[in-house]
């Protein structure tokens, strides 16, 4: 097999990606061992790998993970309930939509996480602040996506409902809501991701809760290998969540 033929195989890009990542890690290990990179700033990658079991067992990573997951789950439930309800409300009342849609879009674009000191004052340094922050960050995207899904329902479906003399209630539950569900799910996924990002971020910033706090604690102890291991763990978790929700969204999306 020629070199050109190998590069065209289906598996080659994946191998190249993973291979170059491993190569970069080995190169960093070499540079640190040669003294080209200060090991008090960047720990040896092998130390980070060895720190994983220690961090998992001694720092109770799984219980922290479940705490963060519970906070993200609570925020997601709130975001879904209030976001979908908000989207439905804006869809049902056209005047309200015209008056406030740009405001909701502006809120979605605003750096809302910066109000966490305000939530600290209102709710205190506890899980409510973290959940409230996740909820605040995820609400606007879910509302906007719900509205987009409902407004994008095909005219022919609405007309079919009308021809069957459906009541507004039936029209909503039998036609509008099922048609908008894939888009609503996109919004829910966005809301979950926004909530998760903000929850881990606020945990880190206020040094309370699950995985975010773990990173902060290890950094304050100057446990370099542990800090890097904890960061890698959080990255791994967020990649898994992102990947799974993306698969679920694809599965729910109707075939074009």
């Amino acid at each position: 097999m020629s070199a050109q033929a190998i590069t065209k195989t289906r598996w080659f890009p994946g191998v190249l990606g993973i291979g170059s990542f491993i190569g970069a890690v080995l190169l960093i290990e070499l540079f640190i061992r040669l003294g080209l990179v200060n090991r008090f700033i960047v720990p040896l990658p092998s130390d980070i790998v060895w720190a994983f079991p220690r961090v998992i067992i001694e720092e109770h990573v799984f219980s922290r993970f479940f705490l963060t997951a519970a906070e993200a789950f609570s925020a997601s439930i709130l975001v879904t309930v209030f976001g979908v309800a908000g989207g439905v409300l804006l869809h049902q009342f056209r005047l309200l939509r015209e008056a406030t849609e740009t405001w909701v879009a502006a809120v979605a674009a605003a750096p809302l996480v910066l109000i966490y000191p305000l939530y600290l004052v209102i709710f205190g340094r506890n899980a409510i602040t973290i959940v409230a922050m996740g909820f605040t960050a995820g609400l606007a995207p879910v509302t906007l996506k719900t509205l987009e899904g409902l407004a994008g329902t095909r005219r022919v479906l609405i007309n079919v409902g009308r021809s069957f003399n459906l009541t507004p209630w039936q029209q909503f539950w039998k036609i509008l809501f099922p048609a908008a569900l894939p888009t609503i799910f996109v919004g829910m996924r966005l809301g979950l991701i926004f909530a998760l990002i903000n929850i881990v971020g606020v945990e880190f910033l206020i040094n309370f809760g699950g995985l975010g706090q773990l990173i902060n604690e290890l950094a304050e102890r100057y446990d370099l290998a542990g800090t890097y291991a904890a960061i890698s763990f959080v990255i791994l978790i967020s990649i898994c969540v992102f990947f799974l929700t993306e698969r679920l969204e694809r599965w729910l999306r109707p075939v074009e």
Binding site: I193, I197, L205, I215, L218, V234, F242
Partner: peptide, 18 residues
């Protein structure tokens, strides 16, 4: 694509060290 949505603030301790 998968690193993009990670909460970037968790890199802050590393950035302080660097």
């Amino acid at each position: 694509y998968y690193l993009g949505p990670c909460p970037k603030i968790i890199f802050f301790p590393v950035m302080i060290m660097w």
